[in-house]
Simulated assay, not measured.
Amino acid sequence: MKELSFEALPQLKLSDRVYQVLNLMQEHHVTDLAVTREGKLAGLVNENTLLDVDDELSLEAIQQPLLNYSVKEDEHFLKAFALATAHHLSVVPIVDHENNLVGTIEAVTLAGHVADFLQLQDAGGLLVLEVEARQYSFSEIGKIVEANDAQITQLNTKQIREREVVEITLRINKLEISDIVASFQRYDYTVKYYFGEELYTNELKDNYENLMNYLSI
């Protein structure tokens, strides 16, 4: 998530009044906003929970539970997309490992990044792996892919120092990658996401289209 630009959306406090929150949602064209308590994420407030309450009340006084959804700043943006899709969120909060609110990103922005993935279909499959930093080996990764009659067309890595792991994004020159996924799992790689022929054209596309329908775009 760190490589993405976060939106300049307001961060609410529990002392904010309902009418203020609704005005901010209307101004920024979202139905959710992040609420903080001393810099830490308290949760998300949704427009629907505010429509039938006294608009002079504070968020703390309305006694409605906040939504407990967020993504860590070192996680892949696809996790944020999956969260937004599953729970019909217009905004996803991004936090650090101490639950400090780092920023927020809109679902429409996430959908744009997923659209970029969909446009890469002709280029082949894509895998996002994770492995302990001390076990990372470029040559081993190449051998696993080549043993399945495929080649790596692009490889990017990102160190996640807090957990001492490396996140690896691979582009493969073919869409049928189920055997490659199974091979990496046998070698104790964590396969976080993969987009091959079946999953790529069905599940990811369906999630993207469902989110687009929800956002009425």
Rank of each mutant, 00 (worst) to 15 (best):
V71D: 01
E75D: 15
A182N: 14
K174I: 05
E162I: 09
D149R: 13
S178D: 14
L126H: 08
I168W: 00
V181G: 07
A82K: 12
V91M: 06
G103D: 03
D116P: 06
Y136S: 01
A107R: 00
Q185C: 06
E162H: 09
T157D: 12
Q185E: 10
L120H: 12
N100S: 14
N156I: 10
I152G: 06
V131R: 00
T109A: 15
R163P: 03
A84V: 01
N100F: 15
L110G: 03
E73Y: 10
F81E: 02
E167G: 06
Q135F: 09
H76T: 05
S137A: 13
E197Q: 13
L118H: 06
V102C: 09
T109Y: 07
V166D: 01
D116L: 11
G196P: 02
I144L: 15
K143W: 07
F184H: 04
F138S: 10
A147K: 12
E130Q: 15
V166G: 02
L118P: 04
V131S: 01
R161P: 04
E164N: 08
V114Y: 01
I177N: 01
I141E: 00
V128W: 02
D74F: 06
T201A: 10
L155P: 04
L101E: 05
G103A: 07
H97C: 12
E164V: 00
E75L: 07
Y208T: 07
I144K: 01
E176C: 10
H76C: 09
I94V: 15
L129C: 06
S183C: 08
I180H: 03
L83F: 02
A147V: 06
V166H: 00
I152M: 12
S90H: 12
E162Y: 07
V145S: 05
K143N: 13
G112D: 15
L110D: 02
N173R: 04
N207T: 05
E198D: 13
G103T: 03
P93A: 09
E167P: 04
K143M: 11
F138G: 07
S183I: 03
Y187G: 07
Y187W: 09
G142K: 06
V191E: 05
E140F: 08
E75K: 08
S70T: 05
T153A: 10
L126A: 11
V114S: 06
E106N: 12
R163Y: 09
D74M: 07
D149Y: 12
A150F: 04
N100M: 14
Y189V: 02
F81K: 00
E198I: 13
K174H: 08
L175V: 07
E164P: 00
Y136W: 06
H76I: 04
T109I: 12
F77C: 08
H76D: 15
D116A: 11
K158S: 13
Y193W: 12
L127H: 02
K79M: 09
T153L: 13
I141G: 01
F195L: 13
L83C: 05
N202Y: 12
L175G: 09
N207H: 10
L211I: 03
I180Q: 05
I177F: 04
I172F: 04
E140A: 11
Q135M: 11
L89Q: 04
A123S: 14
F184V: 06
K79W: 03
R186D: 10
S139Q: 14
R161N: 14
Y208E: 11
T153H: 11
E140C: 08
H113T: 07
L127A: 07
I172H: 01
V114C: 08
